[in-house]
């Protein structure tokens, strides 16, 4: 993987890689991607993709409310919260 590609990917993954880190990870990333190349040796033309390990029946949940009682506890876990809101620096 080119350095540029690594940085684009890091931006997409929202990772703030330092130059030193990027250098360290670059080798490992390339090593792995090179290994992935071996998948090209397999003729996959007649193979359907497997997205779930076992085929199953439909699974649905009834539309009934759960009793909730620990919302405040959940909000209080946020690093910053105020008046029941979870607070972050202004995103605009």
């Amino acid at each position: 993987m080119e350095k540029d590609d690594l940085l684009i990917t890091a931006a997409q993954a929202q990772l703030a890689l330092s130059a030193e880190e990027a250098g360290r990870l670059e080798t490992a990333v390339s090593e792995m991607l090179d290994y992935f190349e071996m998948m090209n040796e397999v003729d996959v033309s007649n193979l359907p993709p497997t997205t779930h390990a076992l085929v199953r029946e439909n699974a649905l949940r009834e539309d009934n409310p759960n009793p909730n009682n620990n919302q405040e506890d959940l909000v209080n876990r946020a690093p910053e919260n105020e008046d029941n809101f979870i607070v972050i620096p202004n995103v605009l």
């Binding site: 949940r61 539309d63 009934n64 409310p65 759960n66 909730n68 919302q71 909000v75 029941n84």
Partner: peptide
């Protein structure tokens, strides 16, 4: 009555973060 993937109420206008899990 509830949200798409959990049993929280799907309701407009409640206190902030009161229908969460």
């Amino acid at each position: 009555e509830t949200k798409i993937f959990c049993g929280c109420k799907s309701k407009f206008g409640d206190k902030p973060n009161s229908n969460v899990c």
